[in-house]
Write a protein that binds this DNA or RNA. Structure first.
Lengths: 329, 329
DNA sequence: CTGTTAGCGCGTTCAT
DNA sequence: ATGAACGCGCTAACAG
């Protein structure tokens, strides 16, 4: 790896001039410019982004903290983020929290140390600890999916999506609707989607049997187990289930099929996420599409904006969602 | 962002001493050490990884170039890479080539100027241009999925997997077997899997009708279209199809279902990849699992090794694969 | 138009 | 055990 100084010597100019050539400064004579360019060409010299960053205080890198790296949601999100960032020469430094709350905070620090220009955080919780850390980061940051006060947010409309789905079930004639959720430290998925369910049920004077409300984690198996508990423990078997994610819903379907239930005749079912799977399972799953890629794009736009303008005005946007009616309901 | 100098002043010591404390040098008296640590604590000072890298020539960052970011394969791969790297404090700088050959090369350069400690490349081709660039990178590099001479490789056993699959079809009594592949600039998927198919057919004295061999890109729709062409143009309708990816296979299934074919009775079908989808489509798809996460892990191990040992010995490993027999055959 | 001088924030001899 | 001085590779004043 040659340095700018060597190029300068070889071209018989000062380092400054070489720097000017590299950065397309207009104040260089064509003769000198060509001479320098030629030397650069010959030596295969590439300037160190490293050293450059040290001076300019800009790294052109955005840190992205994901809850779990190998999920369809993350995948789409990153894809959207990258699409937007790439246009402006930014790259993504990945951090995988792997569903551990502590790691989210750890990475927040690590990314700061690495001098990233901005951070996009997708947390699975909205705990006080995290909120505090987010506030102390002193860097452009946008949080996806959890409403954290005082910072920019890209939010899914969890509450309304859940309401819409449950309402749809009601309209199809279901009254005994069970629920498969996740832990409530996750405000968006755990609390808001559940609230949507509870509110609609309440508003319609429908009562919910104790065992109808179950909790899983974010995978197919736990959906299977949750459904099993519903079937085995309920005094009155529900006619429909609302699962807060597609995977949970698909796990539930697995169990139902296993015990010989026909879907949606014996049991209707819905999920959230519009995963690719939801389209191809039998029967295809009624769900809502959160447009994750769009979310990623928006988050990227917001972070770039706050980097450019150096303003600290926070803004929140609520993403659209799309109800996809299919055959499981 | 405070600097090491400020800490030094506040603690009434030299920058050197602060540096020693940070790096756990033994040659510091406990009194001084505690004083410095206290100041660091109070100010919330964090050393700049940036500046540090400039001196040490190590960034603790590995660049990862992916063919396409939002695919299950990439997802698993990155997950495996990250799992391994995280243990040693390395992070991933992501680069999405988006199936454009030029971008793979572009990113190779970009990652180099960003001073990453190593590069993991997953190309979709093995063109001369790329090979040349890979050789000139002067950085630890490992290539996944394409056999590029002169560098370390993590390889899938494309040829044998294809052979196994086609042989399996033969054993089930099929003789008229069609093929859906991809472009042959992709040596691994395009050439080797096709060769596996052709060889087995030939060795068994089976002839292949012209229209039985079709090509798609890496998505479901193109599998649908390819299958359509096979059905519509073939003089003799095949009884089985071997698609080189699950998505292609699933697209083909879509078309077959649409025209009322029953799978596997009227037409058997197999894919490659063991995507989550393959498990849940109806009927479930016979495929081979390439253990992508494992591939990522291996690649990460190899890159770390060549960083540590500064040896340039290249090594190639062939990954195991697992045949998964399901109901589409 | 071009060069000189000064750092950016840190680690590392080499003295003391 | 501590500190002064130097340099990593680059950009940004300020002169000329």
């Amino acid at each position: 790896m040659s340095t700018i100084l060597e190029i300068a010597k070889l071209a018989n100019v000062s380092r400054t001039t070489v720097s000017r050539v590299i950065n397309n400064s207009p104040n260089v004579s064509d003769a000198v410019r060509n001479k320098v360019l030629k030397v650069i060409e010959e030596t295969g010299y590439v300037p160190s982004e490293q050293a450059k960053s040290l001076r300019t205080k800009k790294t052109k890198v955005i840190g992205v903290i994901l809850p779990k790296i190998s999920t369809e949601t993350s995948s789409k999100l990153v894809s959207g983020i990258d699409e937007e960032l790439a246009q402006f020469g930014y790259q993504i430094l990945l951090a995988n929290a792997n569903l551990e709350k502590e790691k989210e905070i750890e990475f927040l620090h690590l990314l700061k140390i690495r001098q990233v220009d901005g951070i996009i955080l997708t947390p699975t919780n909205a705990d006080a600890r995290l909120i505090e850390e987010v506030h102390q980061i002193q860097k452009p940051i946008v949080v996806i999916g959890q409403d954290i006060p005082g910072v920019s947010n890209v939010l899914y409309n969890d509450y309304h999506a859940a309401r819409d789905l449950v309402t749809l079930m009601l309209n199809k004639g279901h009254e005994k609707i069970a629920f498969i959720g996740v832990d409530e430290s996750d405000i968006a998925v755990g609390v808001m989607r559940k609230k949507g369910y509870l509110d609609v049920m309440k508003e319609n004077g429908l009562c919910i049997e104790e065992h109808w409300v179950q909790k899983g984690i974010f995978d197919i198996d736990s959906g299977y187990e949750a459904m099993k508990r519903i079937i085995q423990n309920s005094k009155m078997t529900p006619t429909a289930v609302f699962a807060v994610t597609d995977r949970l819903a698909i796990g539930a379907m697995q169990y139902l099929k296993e015990i010989g239930f026909s879907i949606p005749k014996d049991m209707a079912i819905t999920g959230i996420g519009a995963s690719e799977l939801s389209k191809y399972v039998e029967p295809s799953l009624t769900t809502v599409d959160y447009l994750n890629k769009e979310a990623g794009r928006e988050a990227a736009k917001m972070i770039l904006q706050s980097i450019d303008q150096e303003d600290n005005n926070i803004n929140k946007i609520n993403l659209e969602y799309r109800l996809i009616e299919r055959n499981s309901l």
